[in-house]
Protein backbone atom coordinates (compact mmCIF):
# COMPACT_ATOMS: atom_id res chain seq x y z
CA UNK A 1 0.00 0.00 0.00
CA UNK A 2 1.21 3.48 -0.85
CA UNK A 3 -0.67 5.26 1.91
CA UNK A 4 -1.89 3.74 5.12
CA UNK A 5 -3.62 5.56 7.95
CA UNK A 6 -4.25 3.40 10.99
CA UNK A 7 -6.56 4.47 13.81
CA UNK A 8 -5.68 8.12 13.28
CA UNK A 9 -7.11 10.46 15.93
CA UNK A 10 -6.63 14.20 16.26
CA UNK A 11 -8.12 16.63 18.75
CA UNK A 12 -8.13 20.41 18.76
CA UNK A 13 -8.48 21.05 22.45
CA UNK A 14 -11.58 19.10 23.41
CA UNK A 15 -12.92 18.92 19.87
CA UNK A 16 -12.27 15.61 18.09
CA UNK A 17 -11.44 16.42 14.48
CA UNK A 18 -10.38 12.96 13.34
CA UNK A 19 -11.97 9.93 14.94
CA UNK A 20 -10.22 6.64 14.33
CA UNK A 21 -9.56 7.16 10.63
CA UNK A 22 -8.41 4.13 8.65
CA UNK A 23 -7.45 4.46 5.00
CA UNK A 24 -5.30 2.44 2.69
CA UNK A 25 -4.56 3.46 -0.88
CA UNK A 26 -2.68 1.51 -3.54
CA UNK A 27 -0.59 3.02 -6.35
CA UNK A 28 -2.09 4.09 -9.64
CA UNK A 29 -5.40 5.57 -8.52
CA UNK A 30 -7.07 8.95 -8.54
CA UNK A 31 -8.89 9.17 -5.25
CA UNK A 32 -11.42 11.77 -4.18
CA UNK A 33 -11.58 12.70 -0.50
CA UNK A 34 -15.07 14.09 -0.31
CA UNK A 35 -16.67 15.87 2.59
CA UNK A 36 -18.41 19.04 3.65
CA UNK A 37 -16.49 22.03 4.96
CA UNK A 38 -15.17 21.23 8.42
CA UNK A 39 -15.51 17.46 7.97
CA UNK A 40 -11.80 16.86 8.67
CA UNK A 41 -10.49 16.67 5.08
CA UNK A 42 -7.81 19.31 5.50
CA UNK A 43 -6.81 18.04 8.95
CA UNK A 44 -6.26 14.54 7.59
CA UNK A 45 -4.25 15.89 4.67
CA UNK A 46 -2.12 18.04 6.96
CA UNK A 47 -1.45 15.03 9.17
CA UNK A 48 -0.28 12.97 6.18
CA UNK A 49 2.08 15.81 5.28
CA UNK A 50 3.51 16.04 8.77
CA UNK A 51 2.12 19.50 9.50
CA UNK A 52 0.17 18.26 12.50
CA UNK A 53 1.06 15.86 15.24
CA UNK A 54 -1.37 13.00 15.83
CA UNK A 55 -3.00 12.22 19.16
CA UNK A 56 -3.28 8.54 18.28
CA UNK A 57 -2.57 6.22 15.42
CA UNK A 58 -0.01 5.93 12.71
CA UNK A 59 0.45 7.05 9.11
CA UNK A 60 2.73 5.26 6.66
CA UNK A 61 3.61 6.58 3.21
CA UNK A 62 5.30 4.08 0.92
CA UNK A 63 6.24 2.17 4.05
CA UNK A 64 7.85 5.17 5.77
CA UNK A 65 6.67 6.96 8.86
CA UNK A 66 6.04 10.67 8.40
CA UNK A 67 9.45 12.31 8.05
CA UNK A 68 12.11 13.08 5.48
CA UNK A 69 11.48 9.84 3.58
CA UNK A 70 7.73 10.33 3.35
CA UNK A 71 8.16 13.96 2.27
CA UNK A 72 10.45 12.92 -0.57
CA UNK A 73 7.64 10.98 -2.22
CA UNK A 74 4.70 13.32 -1.53
CA UNK A 75 3.95 16.33 -3.70
CA UNK A 76 1.50 18.48 -1.78
CA UNK A 77 -0.77 21.33 -2.83
CA UNK A 78 -2.19 23.03 0.29
CA UNK A 79 -5.47 24.85 0.26
CA UNK A 80 -3.70 28.16 0.85
CA UNK A 81 -0.94 30.01 -0.96
CA UNK A 82 2.39 29.46 0.68
CA UNK A 83 4.46 31.26 -1.90
CA UNK A 84 6.67 33.99 -0.57
CA UNK A 85 5.28 37.06 -2.27
CA UNK A 86 8.62 38.82 -2.72
CA UNK A 87 9.86 36.12 -5.00
CA UNK A 88 9.76 35.79 -8.76
CA UNK A 89 8.64 32.68 -10.62
CA UNK A 90 12.29 31.87 -11.33
CA UNK A 91 13.21 32.09 -7.61
CA UNK A 92 10.51 29.65 -6.62
CA UNK A 93 11.42 27.19 -9.38
CA UNK A 94 15.05 27.28 -8.22
CA UNK A 95 13.84 26.68 -4.68
CA UNK A 96 11.89 23.59 -5.70
CA UNK A 97 14.72 22.18 -7.79
CA UNK A 98 17.17 22.79 -4.92
CA UNK A 99 15.10 20.75 -2.50
CA UNK A 100 13.28 18.12 -4.55
CA UNK A 101 15.35 15.64 -6.52
CA UNK A 102 12.30 14.65 -8.56
CA UNK A 103 11.48 18.20 -9.67
CA UNK A 104 11.52 18.65 -13.44
CA UNK A 105 12.52 22.24 -14.12
CA UNK A 106 11.99 22.08 -17.88
CA UNK A 107 8.52 20.70 -17.43
CA UNK A 108 7.68 23.50 -14.99
CA UNK A 109 8.87 26.19 -17.40
CA UNK A 110 6.97 24.55 -20.25
CA UNK A 111 3.73 24.39 -18.29
CA UNK A 112 4.18 27.98 -17.13
CA UNK A 113 4.83 29.26 -20.64
CA UNK A 114 1.55 27.64 -21.70
CA UNK A 115 -0.02 29.93 -19.13
CA UNK A 116 1.95 32.87 -20.55
CA UNK A 117 3.84 33.26 -17.28
CA UNK A 118 7.41 34.52 -17.56
CA UNK A 119 10.31 33.50 -15.32
CA UNK A 120 10.83 37.09 -14.20
CA UNK A 121 7.18 37.64 -13.20
CA UNK A 122 6.66 38.54 -9.58
CA UNK A 123 4.20 36.53 -7.54
CA UNK A 124 2.95 39.64 -5.77
CA UNK A 125 1.33 41.03 -8.91
CA UNK A 126 -0.54 37.83 -9.79
CA UNK A 127 -4.24 37.21 -9.28
CA UNK A 128 -5.38 34.54 -6.85
CA UNK A 129 -6.30 32.20 -9.71
CA UNK A 130 -2.90 32.71 -11.31
CA UNK A 131 -1.06 31.95 -8.05
CA UNK A 132 -3.07 28.75 -7.65
CA UNK A 133 -2.10 27.73 -11.17
CA UNK A 134 1.58 28.41 -10.45
CA UNK A 135 1.39 26.30 -7.29
CA UNK A 136 -0.29 23.50 -9.19
CA UNK A 137 2.40 23.62 -11.87
CA UNK A 138 5.09 23.35 -9.18
CA UNK A 139 3.35 20.40 -7.55
CA UNK A 140 2.67 18.54 -10.80
CA UNK A 141 6.22 19.13 -12.09
CA UNK A 142 7.52 16.71 -9.48
CA UNK A 143 7.64 13.04 -10.25
CA UNK A 144 6.23 11.95 -6.91
CA UNK A 145 4.58 8.74 -5.82
CA UNK A 146 1.73 10.44 -4.02
CA UNK A 147 0.19 13.74 -5.04
CA UNK A 148 -2.02 15.29 -2.39
CA UNK A 149 -4.17 18.14 -3.62
CA UNK A 150 -6.26 19.96 -1.04
CA UNK A 151 -9.24 21.68 -2.70
CA UNK A 152 -7.41 22.24 -5.99
CA UNK A 153 -10.46 23.95 -7.48
CA UNK A 154 -11.58 25.96 -4.48
CA UNK A 155 -12.42 29.57 -5.23
CA UNK A 156 -11.47 29.69 -8.89
CA UNK A 157 -13.58 30.35 -11.99
CA UNK A 158 -14.87 27.49 -14.18
CA UNK A 159 -12.30 28.09 -16.93
CA UNK A 160 -9.50 27.79 -14.37
CA UNK A 161 -11.14 24.65 -12.99
CA UNK A 162 -10.94 23.07 -16.45
CA UNK A 163 -7.30 24.04 -16.74
CA UNK A 164 -6.54 22.59 -13.32
CA UNK A 165 -8.32 19.30 -14.01
CA UNK A 166 -6.60 18.97 -17.40
CA UNK A 167 -3.20 19.63 -15.87
CA UNK A 168 -3.78 17.06 -13.15
CA UNK A 169 -4.93 14.44 -15.64
CA UNK A 170 -2.28 14.96 -18.27
CA UNK A 171 0.48 14.78 -15.65
CA UNK A 172 -0.88 11.74 -13.85
CA UNK A 173 0.98 8.59 -14.62
CA UNK A 174 -0.19 5.19 -13.63
CA UNK A 175 2.67 4.58 -11.23
CA UNK A 176 1.51 7.29 -8.86
CA UNK A 177 -1.58 8.04 -6.86
CA UNK A 178 -3.47 11.30 -6.57
CA UNK A 179 -5.48 12.02 -3.45
CA UNK A 180 -7.61 15.11 -3.89
CA UNK A 181 -10.06 16.67 -1.53
CA UNK A 182 -12.99 18.73 -2.67
CA UNK A 183 -16.56 19.64 -1.98
CA UNK A 184 -17.16 20.45 -5.68
CA UNK A 185 -17.89 16.83 -6.56
CA UNK A 186 -19.67 17.15 -9.88
CA UNK A 187 -16.68 18.94 -11.39
CA UNK A 188 -14.21 16.15 -10.76
CA UNK A 189 -16.13 12.94 -10.30
CA UNK A 190 -15.61 11.73 -13.86
CA UNK A 191 -11.87 11.35 -13.24
CA UNK A 192 -12.08 9.51 -9.94
CA UNK A 193 -11.26 5.82 -9.47
CA UNK A 194 -12.07 5.69 -5.80
CA UNK A 195 -14.08 7.87 -3.48
CA UNK A 196 -13.76 8.35 0.26
CA UNK A 197 -16.60 10.08 2.09
CA UNK A 198 -15.56 11.79 5.29
CA UNK A 199 -17.95 13.40 7.73
CA UNK A 200 -17.44 14.73 11.24
CA UNK A 201 -13.95 13.24 11.35
CA UNK A 202 -15.05 9.72 10.41
CA UNK A 203 -14.69 7.77 7.18
CA UNK A 204 -18.26 6.96 6.08
CA UNK A 205 -17.60 5.20 2.77
CA UNK A 206 -14.57 4.13 0.83
CA UNK A 207 -15.15 2.36 -2.47
CA UNK A 208 -14.74 2.40 -6.24
CA UNK A 209 -16.55 5.23 -8.01
CA UNK A 210 -18.00 2.98 -10.68
CA UNK A 211 -19.25 0.49 -8.13
CA UNK A 212 -21.05 3.30 -6.34
CA UNK A 213 -22.63 4.50 -9.61
CA UNK A 214 -23.68 0.99 -10.62
CA UNK A 215 -25.20 0.12 -7.28
CA UNK A 216 -27.08 3.36 -6.81
CA UNK A 217 -27.72 4.29 -10.46
CA UNK A 218 -26.81 7.81 -9.42
CA UNK A 219 -23.88 10.14 -9.76
CA UNK A 220 -21.38 10.38 -6.90
CA UNK A 221 -22.58 13.93 -6.38
CA UNK A 222 -26.16 12.70 -5.82
CA UNK A 223 -25.09 9.87 -3.53
CA UNK A 224 -23.09 12.41 -1.53
CA UNK A 225 -25.99 14.83 -1.27
CA UNK A 226 -28.34 12.10 -0.09
CA UNK A 227 -25.86 10.80 2.45
CA UNK A 228 -25.24 14.20 3.97
CA UNK A 229 -28.65 15.85 3.57
CA UNK A 230 -29.07 18.40 6.30
Amino acid sequence: MLLECRNVCKNYGKREVLKDVNISLPSGKIVGLLGKNGSGKTTLIKAINGLLSLDKGEILVDGHKIGVDSKKVISYLPERTYLNMHKTVKDIIEYFSDFYEDFDKDKAYKLLSNLKIQAADKLSIMSKGMKEKVQLVLVMSRKAKLYILDEPMGGVDPATRDYILDTILSNFDEGSTILMSTHLISDIERVLDEVIFIDDGKIIKSESADKMRKESGKSIDEVFREEFRC
Binding site: N49, V68, D69, K71, K72, T81, N84, F99, Y100
Partner: peptide, 13 residues
Protein backbone atom coordinates in the same frame (compact mmCIF):
# COMPACT_ATOMS: atom_id res chain seq x y z
CA UNK B 1 2.75 30.75 9.34
CA UNK B 2 1.60 30.01 5.77
CA UNK B 3 5.18 29.63 4.56
CA UNK B 4 5.50 26.75 7.05
CA UNK B 5 3.34 24.68 4.69
CA UNK B 6 6.27 24.74 2.32
CA UNK B 7 9.10 24.63 4.87
CA UNK B 8 7.76 21.67 6.82
CA UNK B 9 6.99 19.60 3.73
CA UNK B 10 10.54 19.86 2.40
CA UNK B 11 12.47 16.60 2.66
CA UNK B 12 14.70 18.12 5.33
CA UNK B 13 15.24 17.13 8.97
Amino acid sequence: KDEGYLTHTLPVK
